[in-house]
């Protein structure tokens, strides 16, 4: 009884006050990150939407305000012209479709390469598993930009591939590999492969080996077991991995900029050029808003699979 008595005596702090401080501490833990993210992540989208409705101008910043307060009159001018412009010029539609096509195809290829890799890692003995996983993750930690750059040296006219093939006499003239859609696919698959392997590995490693043994015991050949047991159970990993590749690939800029050619139309590059070359901020904003609308569904699906996973844990 001495301890409690002493604490009450010297502190002179009523319990209510202590609780208030405790509650404040909790509130701070929530409020600090929330405030930061609201200001620097959520609010920017509001501004983005606003600018997409303003008119481009030669000024600093290069757009006109959407409302003006003059002589007691509030003038709001919402300019939907940027969106109409996107709809009228086929360039933009082609760029959106091109991005979706390239991202989707690259996602499928990544899945086809990533799945066997994830499977082998998940079935490897424990000590080797960590090493293999590290080998997958390591390139992801090192520079993305430099890894894309590495492909230039491999693909270009007098690059590694052409040099090897020509010295072996397979070809007489260098192949055109760089600045093609092929190079863009390669770049995306290469850069995003770890994003595919990790979620696939996470679901495959949790797969109870006894299920496979049970299936084999009941007479299924390994491939049948794979189709009936492994594949269905790894669907969450397939979905998560595919979306983690697809979503950023749609908005990709660096890969088409470095590896793509003049015919490679991707919306990330279009946005970049609107902003940096044409200095048309409102049109760039409209491009971004439309891209968000296109991506909102896949992002929502990804969020749901992730939060479902959290609840299952």
């Amino acid at each position: 009884m001495g301890r409690r008595g002493k604490r009450r005596g010297d502190g002179m702090t009523p319990r209510a006050l202590l609780e208030w401080v405790g509650a404040k501490g909790r509130a701070f833990v929530v409020a600090a990150p929330l405030a930061w993210l609201t200001l620097f992540f959520l609010l920017p989208f509001v501004v983005l939407a606003k600018i997409s409705l303003s008119e481009s101008a030669i000024a600093r910043p290069p757009y006109l305000p959407i409302w003006e307060w003059a002589e007691g009159v509030l003038n709001v001018s919402l300019n939907f012209g940027n969106y109409l412009f996107l709809a009228e010029d086929p360039l933009y539609l082609m760029a959106y479709l091109g991005s979706l096509k390239i991202a989707a195809a690259a996602t499928v290829i990544t899945l086809l390469i990533g799945y066997p890799m994830a499977y082998v890692i998940a079935r490897a003995p424990q000590h080797r598993r960590n090493i293999l996983l590290m080998l997958v993750v390591l390139p992801f930690w090192t520079s993305f930009l430099l890894r894309v750059y590495a492909w230039i040296g491999i693909l270009k006219g007098n690059g590694v591939i052409n040099n090897v093939l020509m010295s072996m006499g397979v070809i007489d003239e260098p192949l055109v590999l760089l600045q093609t859609d092929f190079a863009v696919y390669l770049g995306i698959v290469y850069s995003y492969l770890p994003f595919m392997i990790l979620p696939l590995y996470a679901t495959l490693v949790k797969l109870d080996e006894a299920l496979l043994e049970a299936s084999a015991d009941l007479g299924a050949r390994p491939f049948v077991t794979f189709l009936n047991v492994t594949l269905p159970l790894s669907v969450p990993g397939i979905i998560a991995g595919s979306l983690l590749v697809f979503i950023p690939a749609v908005g990709e800029f660096v890969i088409p900029a470095l590896l793509g050619g003049p015919d490679t139309l991707m919306i990330g590059s279009v946005l970049w050029n609107e902003f940096f070359s044409n200095r048309d901020w409102p049109v760039a904003s409209a491009v971004a808003i439309v891209m968000l609308v296109v991506l909102v569904m896949p992002i929502a699906i990804l969020q749901r699979t992730q939060s479902g996973k959290e609840e299952a844990n």
């Binding site: 009884m1 301890r3 409690r4 604490r7 319990r15 609780e19 405790g22």
Partner: peptide, 9 residues
């Protein structure tokens, strides 16, 4: 009531 764990004997 309302006494948190660290204040209980």
């Amino acid at each position: 009531s309302g006494v948190p764990p660290h204040k209980r004997d």
